[in-house]
Amino acid sequence: MSKELNLWLDDLLKDIKIIQFKRKNSRRVRIDIAPEALPALLELLQGRASYVHLSAISCVDWIEENEFELVYHVWSYETNSLVSAHTRISREPGVYLSVYDLYTPAAFFERDIHEMFGVYFEGSPDMEKFILTEWNGPPPMRKDFDSEAFVNQTFNWEEYHPQWLKDIEAEGGGITTRPEDVR
């Protein structure tokens, strides 16, 4: 049963022109699809092909292409295989459709992506802040946010100056390379 379903799905997906289909191995499929067609694909996968479990939605910031990549990982408990549906949306304004009506777990992932990347999901039940409640800066997971620079500006490092170091400095030695010099 599960094998037939897989074959049926492979055939079906290969025939659809707007998507790119790639079977990585017996349990992993990668699909690249236009953003406007993704909800329909997910509906098809869930309703007709038993991909009922939304394992995760991942977001990747391809800043050089000015795009966000959204990856929907859905799993079928019947065929034991995972479809990763990739789609790319423009980084500006970074708005996309929620798939909450198909997959309840989407609410968490969409909220998380909204908070960390600034992608707004229309129709998502909850776009409120969650982890970074008191953060007013830019979405931190964006590539143009430099967290190390932020930390260096915001916090003071503990400056150690123990006796052994003073002794070495008295002899003409001392710190030559700090860790931040080689990062």
Partner: peptide, 24 residues
């Protein structure tokens, strides 16, 4: 538990997404 790891061919990960079960 799942890791979504993206490499752009560099010496550091381009993106790592950790899907912990407890996030649900």
């Amino acid at each position: 538990l799942a890791y979504y790891v993206v490499s752009n061919g560099g010496d550091k990960p381009y993106r790592v997404h950790v899907r912990g079960p407890s996030s649900m």
